[in-house]
Nucleic acid binder design. Sequence first.
DNA 1: ATAAACCTTTGAGTTAAGTCACAGGTCAAG
DNA 2: CTTGACCTGTGACTTAACTCAAAGGTTTAT
Lengths: 147, 147
Amino acid sequence: MYRIGELAKACKINNDTLRFYEKNGLLSPSNRSDSGYRLYSEKDKEILQFILRAKGVGFSLAEIRELLSIEVDKANNACADVKELVDAKLLDVEQKLAELTRFQTSLKRLSDACCGGEKSAEHCTILEALESDTSQIRHEHHHYKAH
Amino acid sequence: MYRIGELAKACKINNDTLRFYEKNGLLSPSNRSDSGYRLYSEKDKEILQFILRAKGVGFSLAEIRELLSIEVDKANNACADVKELVDAKLLDVEQKLAELTRFQTSLKRLSDACCGGEKSAEHCTILEALESDTSQIRHEHHHYKAH
DNA sequence: ATAAACCTTTGAGTTAAGTCACAGGTCAAG
DNA sequence: CTTGACCTGTGACTTAACTCAAAGGTTTAT
């Protein structure tokens, strides 16, 4: 069991952020001490790490909350609804993966091209690297969500 | 050449966002009409799409600005500096890729497990799906940047 | 027994990334 | 020749995601 300060420190975030996540339904400590101290379990820590990772790859807290809430109502077995959500997120993730893979290819190309040769300077922009990406992924109806 | 409204519409963003990006050094139209209208080229559009994609995978505008500024000073051939930056970003991207791949695996597992069988309900949480991920990627010194 | 860590509530402040609204003026298309 | 799209500048507003502060009180560690 971690106390708030311990967990925060371990995950390099602010105590207030944990309280904030709690207030916003992302993560509640699974226990409280007799004196009312928040007590986070190992599992809570994993949830937190999940949240932080998800944030890192561009999910908003709202989306993360949604992901975390994916839990079949075991009584009702409302699986179909869940599957829909999951599949939507899966698409999202796959799109992000595709984008990132392009980035990776381009950056690699840049890195290789850069200091390797002498004539390198000609092709030292991500954009140029991206442009020369012949295996370009094009999404016909790619949409960006509004901020 | 696109006028501001045309480009904005094409990329489903606000005119003001384009002006905002310009003011913040992310994208300036490569031309102006005699009357002062912003005129965006095809290349400008590509830059914009790059920006939007990069945002989508969790890069901040500051990071994107940095990525866009990766351009060897062709006179000075300051390649070494560039390579350093590129390699740092590459690490970043690879970390994100690893995270996303985990997400993907988990979500797939969820999707498959969900409506497939009757005993499915037992394993219907991303966290459970993540936990059962035996090929887990663990980063010893994984750090998250402060917001 | 005292300092550091925690609690609650309330509320204000911050940063990033926009978005909206004037005001006053120019430009372009039907 | 008027309407809609654009220009500049200024500044206020918004949302997300924190972050800090203050006030008053309890708990834990040394």
